[in-house]
Write a protein that binds this DNA or RNA. Structure first.
Lengths: 345, 345
DNA sequence: CCAAGCCTTTTACACGCGTCAAGTCTAGGC
DNA sequence: GCCTAGACTTGACGCGTGTAAAAGGCTTGG
């Protein structure tokens, strides 16, 4: 009952009576082979068990049809959403995506990059680790293949394409909203190892100054080695609440995960963010983490356009693939955030 | 300044004056080459930019050093934690892992399996999709290479190795705990498309009967097409609470994501699960989703031993790789769950 | 100085398929 | 019936590396 296994195209050609080069052309593009041959090959393939060798097929082609993606964490729904959107866009464009996670480790990130190089992927899309990233790795990839950074970008890196969110816009929008509806926000930040976190912090400060308000930033110190974002938010806010500080303030968190920790701290201290319409404690986040609608209270935040970012990254890669030799200028594409007003602020 | 690029081993051997076969052996295992040659190759490699071709190196080896992993969702922290633990275990064992996500689509899952076959991966570890999975895909992989299912297993599939949690144990333990500390639990289930969900539901029913209690299962009907787990939990419990039902009951949820939805429903109705020590509404979950400590109130749940599962899956794969020809018996490895008592129940 | 032994190099073939050039076959038009 | 174009086949080479066999160089011991 099991179909006979065939290992090489040579055997296949003997088995179904079509020449090997014709088979080769068929597998690459069936339309390049005559109708009658297509039929014969189709029915032949139904009768046997053959899978073209992945390595042999890619070795001699100029294009491998693969793109490599690196994300820094796997335990963060925001990055997995980004990865998902990239995978969808790439799949739709006919690519095979090889995804790797750097697990917060520059060495693993570098290894993943080397893997991409040795596999001759057609292009790479990577989200940097943060301050610990080895910029040399990005430069190396950028020099060798179409390359796009997404999500965040190292300050010191120049000439590399980038797709992400306009944090100046998104953060300003949130600051404006919070000021309009209540007291000016304090900014609950993070240790400055994350580029986006710094960008948002700076955007907050700039916007506050523009509005003639005094920016207040808390939580930049490390609360615990390797602490999750949530525990950082929880630790910082618990600390303040316990001292009777910020009890009726507006807290803009650097991201939703930190905000979830802040919400927990509030609940622990019997506070209900957003309960009073225009006063009392309010907490807001950034990113629109998938769980935001289900927190207590649901978290007001600003959504990043994840799908647009993924699509744009893949689009840009294809653009560079087609242009190949032309030294196109660096392109930086920033998407606008969108307010998601729920009840926490 | 940039090092000269070298594309083939041939060029490399000419550039540093060592024969190509010696280089080949060096890259596979430096100890198989004499001290002096190692030195020469090392210093030579420092002066040039060479990366062995991934495809060419794998084509002729009996073993590719790669293992394939498939998970059904990327937007679920539980699966990403499992993937992470598998990646760590595999990396430690010297493998390159190729991970694919089936995005809830049997076709994508099948395509990923074909990719693994064409890449001659040394083994595959996959978490099934659920009722929609094409069992034929698993049988095909199982026949061709060391293969292990993890997380959940199709009822109808036999003879395939499995590593996961003992849901009978974990669910019974939770039922016992809930009964000991308060009223017997109702079970908030899911549409029966997920094997683990069904296993837990059955384990709940069995345990309740063993205790001479009447099992009550709710939420098996689909609440909305493609609804997230959280919205399912929210919809089902909101519905009950709005009717004044289950207001002071104990609710054991099929998993934490559903429980998070249930918590939200409770909050919407002004209910505070676990507030009364031995009475009133209580909500518990399953899995120990990473956010459980940060929900309001923190969710009582039973943790799966994610690290042990990942390690066991990789171990089993290596075992089968070594045994190769021996037709080892099927192995099913079930890990115990661990109670995580927080304040929601 | 010669023989034994390890390490290396040389030489050769293999892997599975892409690709090209030249030859063969078929169908269509005259 | 012949001619031409198109589709196919045959044959050959190449990709970058693994791998095995044979031959060469070096050290070591006598």
């Amino acid at each position: 009952m099991p179909k006979p296994k065939i290992h090489t195209m040579e055997e296949l050609s003997a088995a179904i009576g079509v020449s090997r080069p014709t088979l080769s052309r068929y597998f690459q593009d069936p339309t390049k082979v005559s109708r009658s041959s297509v039929e014969r090959i189709r029915t032949g393939l139904d009768r046997v068990d053959y899978t073209p060798n992945f390595f042999a097929t890619r070795m001699n082609r100029k294009t491998t049809g693969m793109i490599g993606v690196i994300i820094p964490y796997l335990n963060d729904l925001f990055f997995t959403r980004l990865l998902e959107s990239i995978e969808r866009a790439a799949m739709a464009a006919g690519y095979t995506v090889i995804s790797q996670c750097s697990h917060s480790d520059p060495e693993i990130e570098a290894r993943a990059a080397e893997t991409f190089l040795s596999m001759n992927v057609d292009g790479a899309i990577v989200a940097p680790l943060g301050n610990h990233s080895d910029l040399h790795v990005y430069e190396r990839l950028n020099a060798r293949m179409p390359f796009v950074l997404f999500d965040s970008r190292p300050k010191l890196l120049t000439g590399v394409d980038f797709v992400g969110t306009d944090h100046k816009q998104s953060t300003s929008m949130m600051v404006d909203y919070l000021c309009r509806v209540g007291s000016p926000p304090v900014f609950l930040a993070m240790p400055r190892v994350n580029f986006n976190a710094v960008e948002r912090e700076n955007a907050y400060i700039a916007r506050m100054i523009e509005r003639d308000l005094e920016p207040v930033v808390i939580g930049t110190e490390m609360t615990a080695p390797g602490a999750y974002f949530e525990s950082h938010g929880l630790a910082v806010m618990s600390d303040h609440f316990a001292r009777g500080a910020l009890l009726d303030s507006t807290v803009l968190c650097v991201n939703d995960r930190v905000a979830i920790g802040a919400l927990r701290a509030a609940a622990q201290h019997g506070l209900e963010p957003g309960a009073l319409r225009r006063g009392g404690l309010r907490i807001a986040g950034h990113d629109d983490y998938p769980l935001c609608p289900f927190t207590s209270p649901p978290l007001t935040t600003v959504a990043q356009d994840v799908d647009a970012i993924g699509q744009a990254a893949v689009d840009r890669l294809q653009e560079k693939l087609r242009a190949e030799n032309q030294t196109g200028n660096q392109i930086v594409k920033l998407m606008d955030g969108v307010m998601k007003i729920r009840s926490s602020a």
